[in-house]
Each structure stands twice: as structure tokens, then as C-alpha cells.
């Protein structure tokens, strides 16, 4: 069967199956198990209403537990075993082995740098772009353009920026903008930017900043518009300049949104894989955790070590996870 046809069948089966399940299970509940007639009609309706939420939730819960909850537990278990010894329990040996590898610490160091630089600059540029585009007539077009990289895949972005960083031998025409600019500004010879440690890590970060700024801008722009006009007017009447209005009045009022944007980008950074994989594959000192993990899992086929590094990523995500859950619970009350 051709894949396209298979896809069509899958859509029909998937959607049809869902509709069939929800409709059928609902019917079964109301007509057969707890029919709303006879002597116990009232009790049956109540019982049916107790069961129904779980009926509606069941497919989602099964999928979530199988595809997200179970893997977390299984990864934790795998990280304590060794595949080459037939999956024997080895305690923390994988973690110890990982801690002894310089490449792991390189990935940790780089990840920490990514964690500091990318969210800060993306949020900063996003805030700047939001504030500026809100004040001009063609602001919506400008926003669209800055937002556009969000639609481009990380792989596509990697190709786009690899052309920017491209280097040709000395004496020939440079086709990468960065080298052309560098030589035009008086640089002595073209540089192989992606092999220059530590500049290359920052050049990779630029790609992600370029992608994420639009996201920050869209959300911060909505938050800026939500600021009550009278607070700004009061500040201006009191003689505040534009800078003071921005930093003393506007920024404090959108602080919670800035935190949300910052943490969301932090999550993206922790999982960044495609950009490094496509541009340097972790060579020349640019390794990051996600790519290190991929290396261990699918190139070295070492599931224990791979799982251990995945657990490290999970551990770094955990504070944000807990914080998100607590905020969500507080808001529901």
C-alpha cells in the first residue's frame, strides 16, 4: 500500500475510530448500562454522569500515559541498567561514566551558556520589537516579518545561517555575508566561523535567537497593549520621559508575562537539537545535551548512557515543570 493511501486510511480510521468510540461508548452508557428509564432512572442518570467524564478522557489518558508518562519512568529505569550486560541493574554506573566524559561537561557548559544568552537576548529583542512596532503605522507588517522565522524549521534556519557564515579560501570572492563584512571592515583573512572556539557556540545561538524573538515579541506586544492607559498618562503628566515610562511603568506591569516568555524559551533551549545537529553536529566544542544524548543513543547505541543524559535534561526542566504546575493550580482556585 502506498504511504499516501496508508495515510488516508489512517485519517479515516483515526477520525472514524474516535467518533465511533465516543458515540458508541456514550450510547452504550445511556441506553444499555445505565438506561434513564425504569425504576432506577434518577440513580442511573447520576451514575452515567459520574462515568461519562472518564469516557471522554479515556483515549487521551491512554495516549498520554503511554507516550509521555511511561517513557519518563522507563527512561529512569534504563538509565540505571546496562544494555550490553543484557539490561542488568548497574546502579549509578552510567551517571558516573557520563561524569567522567569531557564531552558531557562540554555539553553542560554550552547548555548553561545557551540558557543564559538565548532567553535573555530573545526576550530583550522581543520587548524592543514589541515596543517599537506598536508605535508605527506599518508595525503589523514589521511584526509579521520578525515573527516569520517561527514558521521555518530549525533545519531550514541552519541552512539559512550556514550560508551567512560560509567561508571561501582567501583571495576568492566571499559568498557568506559575515566574511564579506569582516573583510570589508578590514579583517585580514576569511574566517571559518563555525570552527572558531568559542565564537561558534554564540553563532549557533544567534540562529535560535533569530527564531525565538518573534515569539517573544508577539506575546509581549499583547501584554504591552493590555497595560491600563491611565498609568502611562499619569506618569507622563508627572514628567516622566519615554525611557522612564518604558522601564519604570510598562516593564514592571508586564513582569509576569516576561517570566512566562523567558521560561518558554528556556524550555526550547534545553531541547535544542536540530540546529547543532545540522550545523556542527557538536564538533569544535559546540556540543549540547540533546545532541550528546542523540549521539549516545543512536550512534554509540549506548541506551544506558543515553537515558542518563536524557534524565539530566529532565532534571533541568523539572524546576520549570513544578513552577508551571503550581501557577496553574493557583489560578484554578
Amino acid at each position: 500500500m502506498s504511504p499516501a493511501l496508508q495515510g488516508l486510511v489512517m485519517i479515516v480510521l483515526g477520525v472514524g475510530g474516535c467518533v465511533g468510540y465516543f458515540y458508541g461508548a456514550n450510547l452504550l452508557l445511556d441506553r444499555v448500562i445505565f438506561p434513564a428509564r425504569g425504576a432506577q432512572a434518577g440513580r442511573n442518570i447520576n451514575r452515567a454522569n459520574l462515568v461519562r467524564p472518564w469516557l471522554f478522557l479515556l483515549p487521551a489518558l491512554v495516549a498520554l500515559s503511554l507516550y509521555l508518562v511511561y517513557p519518563v519512568i522507563e527512561t529512569l529505569r534504563l538509565s540505571l541498567t546496562d544494555r550490553s550486560q543484557g539490561g542488568a541493574f548497574v546502579g549509578l554506573a552510567n551517571y558516573r561514566q557520563m561524569a567522567a566524559e569531557p564531552k558531557f561537561w562540554e555539553a553542560m557548559r554550552n547548555n548553561l551558556m545557551w540558557l543564559v544568552v538565548v532567553p535573555a537576548l530573545s526576550t530583550g529583542f522581543g520587548l524592543l520589537a514589541a515596543q517599537l512596532t506598536d508605535r508605527i503605522r506599518w508595525g503589523n507588517i514589521a511584526k509579521s516579518i520578525i515573527f516569520m522565522p517561527m514558521a521555518i524549521s530549525f533545519v531550514g534556519a541552519a541552512v539559512i545561517w550556514k550560508l551567512v557564515y560560509d567561508a571561501r579560501p582567501e583571495g576568492t570572492e566571499q559568498i557568506g555575508v559575515l566574511n564579506a563584512l569582516y573583510l570589508w571592515l578590514g579583517g585580514a583573512e576569511p574566517q571559518q566561523w563555525l570552527t572558531l572556539i568559542p565564537a561558534n557556540t554564540f553563532l549557533l545561538m544567534i540562529v535560535l535567537i533569530w527564531v525565538q524573538t518573534g515569539f517573544a515579541m508577539v506575546i509581549l506586544s499583547a501584554a504591552l497593549r493590555g497595560i491600563p492607559e491611565d498609568t502611562i498618562e499619569a506618569a507622563i503628566i508627572d514628567g516622566a520621559g519615554p525611557m522612564q515610562v518604558f522601564f519604570r511603568i510598562k516593564v514592571p506591569q508586564i513582569a509576569s508575562t516576561i517570566v512566562v516568555v523567558w521560561t518558554t524559551i528556556t524550555l526550547v533551549v534545553l531541547k535544542v537539537f536540530d540546529i547543532v545537529f545540522a550545523m556542527t553536529n557538536g564538533q569544535w566544542g559546540t556540543q549540547v545535551l540533546a545532541n550528546y544524548m542523540y549521539d549516545k543513543m543512536f550512534r554509540a547505541n549506548d541506551w544506558g548512557l543515553g537515558s542518563a543524559s536524557a534524565m539530566v535534561i529532565m532534571l533541568l526542566v523539572l524546576p520549570i515543570l513544578i513552577w508551571n504546575v503550581r501557577t496553574a493550580r493557583r489560578e484554578m482556585r
Binding site: Y67, P71, V72, K271, M297, A310, I320, N324, A328
Partner: peptide, 23 residues
């Protein structure tokens, strides 16, 4: 219900990387 919603908010940020090998 509240617990489930909180769990979904938590699952929102679970890194994909953890799911690869088990799945």
C-alpha cells in the same frame, strides 16, 4: 479534575528526548 489539569500542565514541558528509546 484539578489534579488531571495540573498533570497536563506538567506533561506540557516533558522533553521529547525522554520518550525516544522507551517508545
Amino acid at each position: 479534575r484539578a489534579l488531571l489539569i495540573a498533570a497536563i500542565v506538567g506533561l506540557l514541558v516533558v522533553p521529547l528526548q525522554l520518550a525516544l528509546i522507551p517508545l
